[in-house]
């Protein structure tokens, strides 16, 4: 009766991820709008004329956050809500893909595109005169952590949004919070404000990026938190990842809200 093939779980996930990648590149409008949205940050140095390492960090660190917000966060939220509303998730649920494999296949191409664009931006800054990162591992950590947080918070926002159309409004709060706090990381603000900034989503990754560029001495209120430096940034970011995951799980729906 049934002929079986011995396809592995990884094989199925890769098959789906390849399909999602192909689909992503077929949607020219999405690719174009994402590229333009993120590559706009290349204009920042032309306006700010940074010369010192600290000035470059003030441009680059928030740029990391901007790029992942626009390429990974917004597209993940839109894609998951669209898949739910089109009842694709429901269909895939009847295949042998597990939920986590389904999500990996959807998000991996978006993260890949986001990281590629971030690389283009960082290389672009370097060509425009930015200093090389003093700690490459920290920079990789900042990129990885920001992509992870953008993907998980995108899932949460997409699931919380009532429908795919309303995602464009649902993403605004986190974009604003992310953009503002990423900029405040290197601003010598009031002490009461600086005490809370490290707790904000995406502030940690902006801080990590700044540390990678060797300007950690100007950052944040060191005596407010028991943990300091990169460890604190990673811990706070992972806490936001966990919270986003919990929200996505709680709000998860296989079918559109009617």
């Amino acid at each position: 009766m049934t002929l079986q093939t011995s396809r592995t779980s990884i094989g199925r996930t890769m098959q789906m991820a390849a399909f999602e990648t192909q689909l992503l590149f077929c949607q020219r409008t999405t690719v174009l709008s994402n590229s333009i949205g993120s590559l706009v940050v290349l204009a920042f140095p032309l306006l700010a004329h940074p010369t010192t390492r600290t000035q470059w960090a003030a441009v680059e660190a928030p740029s990391v956050v901007f790029v992942v917000l626009f390429t990974i966060y917004v597209t993940t939220a839109g894609s998951i809500a669209a898949r739910r509303d089109m009842q694709i998730l429901k269909r895939l649920r009847t295949s042998q893909l597990r939920t986590v494999e389904m999500l990996f296949a959807l998000i991996a191409p978006l993260v890949l595109v986001g990281v590629l664009q971030l690389t283009v931006v960082l290389v672009g800054y370097r060509l425009m005169g930015a200093p090389a990162p003093s700690d490459l591992v920290l920079m990789l950590g900042a990129v990885t952590a920001s992509a992870l947080l953008a993907a998980f918070s995108g899932l949460a926002t997409g699931m919380v949004a009532r429908d795919a159309e309303r995602v464009q409004f649902a993403v605004l709060p986190l974009i604003l919070i992310g953009a503002v706090t990423a900029n405040l990381v290197l601003v010598d603000a009031d002490a009461s404000v600086r005490a809370w900034i490290p707790l904000m989503p995406f502030a940690g990754v902006a801080d990590l990026a700044a540390r990678a560029l060797g300007v950690s001495d100007v950052l944040l209120a060191p005596d407010v938190f028991p943990l300091h430096g990169a460890a604190r940034d990673i811990l706070v970011t992972m806490a936001w990842v966990a919270l986003s995951g919990a929200v996505a799980r709680r709000a998860w729906r296989w079918e559109p809200r009617r």
Partner: peptide, 19 residues
């Protein structure tokens, strides 16, 4: 249950065969 709308019928089945 939905399908990817801009994908052809044949491609839809080929995708399914991989899942």
């Amino acid at each position: 249950a939905g399908f990817f709308l801009n994908v052809t019928v044949e491609r839809t089945l080929r995708l399914w065969s991989g899942l």
